[in-house]
């Protein structure tokens, strides 16, 4: 996983609520067995018209937001299916940060596993950021200092779980970290045999 420390870039405002993972990556693209190459399918039904041409009405097709690396969206972003393809498509398209008032739980986990930083900010802050983005103001997201700033000088602090922060800052491989607890896992498995709850394991 690529570490994330700080990023300054173009922010794209996606002013919609409850954006679900079926919109982020429609189901017909979930059949691939690779992790890569999903960016071309991001927001497919919104980005492209039925004839395959770009939909000029959709925000990511607006020339102002080409090359955006920060997405600013409405609450409950990423709800629905657990498909990690949603995170893969956002990352492959070029997004490293998503800012919204709230995120769905599974999507939240998936993004962090892929080095995408999700920043939760209050409604009014998200609204201000959308307005700033529309004016073409660059946005900086600094994970070290836990702050979002605009080039106009506005800034908001944000909270993040320290474990996730560390994994992102250092680009840590989760499984490798867990395997450092091999002794604890083995001890738990041994103990399970005597645990009255071990009936669960019967298979």
């Amino acid at each position: 996983m690529e570490p994330f420390v700080t990023l300054t870039g173009v922010a794209a405002p996606l002013d919609r609520v409850n954006v679900d993972t079926d919109q982020i990556i429609p189901k017909q693209f979930l059949k691939r067995v690779e992790r890569t190459g999903f960016g071309q399918f991001l927001f497919y039904d919104w980005r492209f018209l039925p004839d395959g041409k770009e939909n000029p009405e959709f925000v990511l097709n607006d020339p102002r937001y080409r090359g955006a690396s920060i997405l600013v969206a409405g609450p409950n972003f990423g709800c629905g299916s657990s498909r990690e393809h949603a995170a893969w498509s956002l990352l492959d398209y070029g997004f490293r940060v998503i800012i919204a008032p709230s995120f769905a739980d599974i999507f939240y986990n998936n993004c962090f596993k892929n080095g995408i930083l999700l920043v939760t900010l209050p409604d009014d802050a998200v609204r201000s950021l959308m307005d700033a983005a529309a004016r073409g103001v660059a946005v900086t997201v600094d994970l070290e200092r836990q702050v979002v700033e605009t080039a106009e000088g506005a800034s908001w602090g944000f909270e993040i779980d320290p474990f996730r922060r560390r994994c992102l800052l250092e680009g840590l491989d989760d499984i490798g970290l867990t395997l450092q607890h091999e002794d604890a896992i083995a001890a738990y498995e041994a103990k399970r045999k005597d645990n009255p709850l071990a009936v669960f394991a019967a298979r």
């Binding site: 992790r35 657990s82 498909r83 990690e84 995170a87 599974i106 986990n109 998936n110 596993k113 892929n114 989760d174 499984i175 867990t178 395997l179 607890h181 896992i185 498995e189």
Partner: peptide
């Protein structure tokens, strides 16, 4: 609960 593919890999490898 539902998990993403990275977590699927994590569970396959560690059962945790």
């Amino acid at each position: 609960f539902g998990i993403g593919t990275s977590e699927v890999e994590h569970v396959l490898a560690t059962q945790c």
